[in-house]
Design a binder for these strands. Structure first.
Lengths: 344, 344
DNA sequence: CTGAAAGCGCTTACAG
DNA sequence: CTGAAAGCGCTTACAG
């Protein structure tokens, strides 16, 4: 039964009619112009131009059974490192005619399944997870889809599929060692709620093991329940740290944002950083080098993570077999020691 | 001709076969379960569950000719205000079964047309532009699509269609007046390249007119060509300001990021803010209240912009006629006066 | 309450 | 170099 057709977007049929050719000649003129006679091509192009024809990508995908869309799942749009990864991914995929679709994934865990359903309902060619927690059900759903799945911003020991990231445990340990090298022994870890942040927990585990290695107290941990990962969490957190562990000489903050809040609060209270309290962050936020004192943090090649993910995805879609090595890339990280933790 | 079928995702046909019913009974069981007999519904549900069936949203859209996707175009993912708008839009649209698709739009202007083609090729139900410049060609293409288009984060005098935003000129003027009220007369505007930032130019225009109103020198303008809108631009820019206009007592920075860079540089140089130089930003970034001194900025209801855009879109898709007023919402802004521009 | 037919916009082989 | 047929996965009326 005929339905009302889309009032405004021209279809291939209309283009064909106007150019006086058949549908598939139009299709060919678009996708393999060299196969079409120059004169007919001209006619088709003129019709496309005149009608402002834009092919329906969904209909094309349905027909070819080939998706050109890669879905990206991120916990929120609010972290600039993730944005840089999307940039890198996008520019790499573009070379291969693939496009990034960012799901609006600002959901609580409860609705993770709903989010995944929505994504899979769009039939992407692959899925890139950026720092995304996923339940057992979610993992199963993704794996069951048979799509290439790339986890990024982490380096899990039991990856679902491909991985591009780094070890958060190593981050926690490296920052702790840095502070120990600066002669600190009363180091406190300032983190967030345990259950909602697996990567943060990994960094905490790294802290604990590095402290234990040096026979230092590994239980100096303060948790801010509210305002997860915000500047305000740092402000509140540093106060708790100084209350609970007044002998603290160094604080490892979960992220640069938290560290920024902690530093601001120290300044307000007239506590000198790094002389009275050394502070470290994590994530290489743009402001970290501009703070006074400049903030010690970790540098992560966020853009590169995206590029690697794009390459792996492309290879997978070409059915190239990847070695374990090629499909699991540890991009590492770098501790950037700055004034907030190094005395002049 | 039969093609290889998607290896992994189950189709409605397989579900029907497994449940022993016809395709459209499956379709009905999904969309209008109350119309289907309880027993058949159970069978269908079991089959869906067993096969992990997720309907192909693209095929559905093709068949119904109704899109449930709203495309969002933003200049980059790096500005948190925009992210909040997406949050608001997304949560509003979700109520009506609509979903947000964020285009990877991190393009230079040259490829704006390509971006728009890609978006329109996905046949969205509408388009929301967040702070997006668009060429005459781009405007025409969008309008020609016949889709509802909502411009946000601006309040142009010649909108394409619907608008939810605020006047950047008013922002520039209000910040200038705030500084004049604080007895400043040597006020310098610190901005970016003229040609790439229409909103910034509007704020500059607001500055100029507010200065002229008080018969003050409206030409104290410094432009940083590189590092557009970054912290580093502020760092570089404040130096230029002090070089070119050494009598400056107040600086209006294009955004909070730029202001942050300026403040950090002042601190490094031992220039007291606000006593020697007052500083204002724009955009209500999360860090602004936590800086020391806290930063004077503008507060914008970013989330609310998204919610309004979502409501307008929904109304438009219901073919509701909107009054001029309903389709053009000025959410305004608020000058948040803080320590960086107000002496104790 | 359930099913056979027709169609959404496009493309892939196959003929000519 | 170009076209008629069949199909991608789904849904909308229409019968029954």
């Amino acid at each position: 039964m005929p339905r009302t057709k889309n009032a405004t977007q021209a279809t291939i049929k209309e283009v064909a009619a106007r150019a006086g050719v058949s549908l598939m000649t139009v299709s060919r003129a678009i996708h393999r112009p060299e196969v079409v006679a120059a004169t007919t091509r001209k006619k088709v192009e003129a019709a496309i131009e005149a009608l402002n024809y834009i092919p329906d990508a969904g209909a094309g995908r349905l027909s070819t059974q080939k998706s050109t869309t890669v879905a990206v799942v991120l916990p929120s749009l609010h972290f600039e490192g993730h944005a840089r990864t999307v940039d890198g991914l996008s520019s790499e995929l573009r070379k291969h005619g693939l496009h990034v679709l960012i799901a609006d994934s600002f959901y609580s865990k409860n609705t993770e399944m709903e989010l995944l359903r929505r994504i899979l309902g769009r039939r992407p060619a692959g899925v890139v997870l950026i720092n995304s927690a996923h339940s057992a059900d979610g993992r199963q759903m993704l794996l069951g889809s048979g799509l290439p799945v790339i986890e990024t911003w982490d380096f899990p020991s039991d990856p679902m599929d491909s991985v591009v990231g780094f070890s958060h445990k190593a981050v926690g340990a490296a920052l702790t060692r840095h502070l120990i090298d600066q002669n600190h022994s009363c180091i406190t870890f300032l983190g967030g709620p345990q259950d909602s942040d697996p990567r943060g927990n990994e960094r905490l585990a790294g802290f604990r093991s590095a402290m234990a290695d040096q026979h230092l107290d590994a239980d100096r941990v303060v948790t801010v329940e509210q305002d997860h990962l915000t500047i305000n969490a740092g402000k509140l957190g540093i106060s708790q740290v100084l209350d609970q562990y007044p002998d603290t000489t160094a604080v490892i903050c979960l992220t640069d944002r938290v560290a920024m809040g902690a530093m601001m609060e120290c300044r307000r209270r007239g506590i000198s950083v790094p002389d009275e309290v050394a502070i470290t962050g994590h994530g290489g936020f743009d402001f970290s080098e501009h703070l006074v004192p400049s903030l010690t943090t970790t540098h992560i090649d966020a853009y590169g993570i995206g590029v690697h993910a794009g390459r792996i995805l492309h290879a997978r879609l070409q059915n190239q077999l990847l070695s374990e090595e090629q499909g699991r890339i540890d991009v590492g990280f770098e501790v950037v020691a700055r004034d907030s933790s190094v005395r002049a």
